[in-house]
Nucleic acid binder design. Sequence first.
DNA 1: TCCCACTTTGC
DNA 2: CAAAGTGGG
Length: 470
Amino acid sequence: MRIEHLVWLRNDLRILDNPALHLASIEARALKEKVGVIVTVTPTQWSEHNESDAKIGLRAGLTKTLVKSLATLGIPSHIIHVDTFKQLPDAMTEFCLEHDTKHLWFNHDLPIHEQQRDQAVCQKLQKHQITTHIQPSDRIVPQAVFSQQGTPFKVFTPFFKRWLTLLAQQDIAPLPAPEPQGTPLPESALDYTWAKTFRDDLWPADQDIAKQRLWLFCHHKERHYSEHRDYPMQPATSTLSPYLALGALGPRQCLEAIMYTCNQEDRDWRDSVWLKELAWRDFYRQLMEHFPHLCMNQPFKADTNLLRWRNNPDEFLAWCEGRTGFPIVDAAMRQLKQTGWMHNRLRMVTASFFTKLLFADWRKGEAYFMSQLIDGEFAANNGGWQWSASTGCDAAPYFRVFNPTRQSETYDKNGEFIKRFVPELAHLDAKSIHNPSSEQRIQCDYPEPIIDYKPARQAAIAAFDELKGL
DNA sequence: TCCCACTTTGC
DNA sequence: CAAAGTGGG
């Protein structure tokens, strides 16, 4: 079968608001040619990138439902299964030659290995007179957001202001699904042997369900988001991040839902705190685009390379496994391990604990998060870790060390979240659960704190202070 | 997207 | 004397 226009889907596993898919189908229609979709599977590469089983599992599931939806539109799908990005230029070329492909369409992907992959594939295809069409990056504002001086913003707030201005000036309607191309296709047998198990009870692998969740969230919860979002027991956050990371939902679909809801409720959509979170996503993505050393294991602030991280291996393991002796930290780390997801407030608490109190290299924490998160996304994860470690731009000032016990008392007042994930503490009262006495710890078979908060905090601040003197 | 030490207030 | 407020890191 001929596929003159091949759409290569990667982290954009959706039919709606997909620029590459949309434009390819328009072009094919105009030329009376055919569109097809290809998905590439690179397990060895993914494991080098610390992709979690949960995310790979969700990717497989989303691919499956996407393939079905495309088939009803008469658009055929294929899966190429290799080990690493290196093998893709040959594999893609072979596929294109087999299917008389003349054009390859895809949406821009950010991290450096992905960019090198795309360049290598394009170069090889161009040798065979196959044209490549790259669409802009998956952001709400895809174009460059620059300051008056024409430089990228390094601080979020001015970035956000400019971002809102640009947003007001452009057409933000999400792109429609491609038009049907002939009659529906029969189900084809594709290779899903690479799929992994994950909590599909929490995140159904279906872009239509993701879209429903988006609208339900906007309708019922968006208005109260800023008030409740910091409390991990409240079902107040969108929990859409896994779908955004894999592109089953596009950020502009989210914007559309926010605008619609705010309009209905007579609110100004520019004040939406959830929209601000989506702007952070854009912010970290544009940072990575303009400062590529962020993809190369480097901190934004170069002088922080001089910090002597303690990197104690026993402490690292205790943190990963949720047995640090700090109940809120352990509950959070167990939530991550068990569900593939962690509440955002707790990501800040556990990352601050890791980088400041354990004084462990933020890159090790970043990698571990990536290996567990179902919503792991390079730019946001890196940005968040560098924010916590105070090595990033517009990062938390280094002296702002989270006190895990205080955070616990403030955001999990009655210890309900702790009780859910650290059941050995379930019978403790609301006061002592945040920091049980030694006797209580023995009774519960729960460890003593692996670190002494006060001196650890002081040591971390002192280490950063020393940098200033150099 | 904070913490802490210190001061002031209010009973 | 505890709660609430303040300023500096």
